[in-house]
Amino acid sequence: MGNAVTGLVAVLLGVGGAVALFWILNFAAERMPKQWEERFKPYAFIGPALFVVGIFLLYPSIITVVDSFRTSIGTADEAWTLANYNWLFTDPALRDALINNFLWILFVPAGAVSIGLLVAVLADRLSPTWEKVSKSLIFMPMAISFVGASTIWLFIYAWRPPGTDQIGLISAIFQGLGSPLATPIVQNGTLRLNTFALMIVMVWLQAGFAMVLLSAAIKNVPEDTIEAARIDGATEIQIFWKVTIPQIASTIVVVTTTILILVLKIFDIPRVMTSGNFNTDVIANVYFDQLFTARNQGRASVVVVALIVLTLPFMYINIKRFRAQEAAR
């Protein structure tokens, strides 16, 4: 309970401190000569936010890039090196992890968007009450942590030797159908089946998010464009592909890239479900193992540099989209 009290004090100090800080900044600005005041004020008001991202995101990014060129960091042997990059491009275990990341990127956004789209379209045809209920049920997993979801699905995949009573739903279904599973799903690396079993957890978590955004977009499609196609004799399926889809394309792109960025850094699910064993490793988990098990900060840093490089295109897309929005304002 002592910590909770500290937490309460932190809220009061944090909020009170922030109020006091802005009051002081404003007070100082107003004591300046008029032309200085106008120039100083904007920087004073964005200063605290800028300071925080500077310390917690910008400065660490620079240090990480520097660290990726260092070896034996924090010891007497610390030196400049390219060995970390050599490891990054040649290590077979890392390449395996990258293949898994690639599979995650390929299947999870597509899976979540397809199911989200399916539910959005189907639920649109129900009465408002049923639409709301069915959407809530699909969206609910969004509230659950990745660790919680991993536990839920480990229970679904729980496995006992064939012939004994199964307590996991999937194992029980297979046994009930007369073809019991010979190995636990999460340990079965044939064709990376276990990676797909892990990816299902993420699709289960993210489909609701895709559904909510896509559903809003579908409801914004002008009714007369659909009506016109209907009069021209188009079938519902033609209308969906040729009228609805083109008009919600930009939302599909936004949802896909958002889930893609999330998946690129996926960590919790493999960490909890397999610890990266059985050929299910991903780069964010390699980073964690390098940092805390191998205690190699140079290698951990080079993995993060790889992650940054992979996110750069999306950073660019986000900025471009933001600029386009601004221009349209």
Partner: peptide, 29 residues
């Protein structure tokens, strides 16, 4: 709502930082 030099550039910085992997921060912090 305020006009100042570098406004767009600084805001673009925030937009860019939205997707930075948190892993960058752990060792330096």
């Amino acid at each position: 709502w305020m006009e100042f030099k570098g406004r767009e550039l600084l805001f673009v910085l925030f937009v860019g930082l939205l997707v930075v992997p948190l892993q960058v921060a752990f060792i330096p912090l």
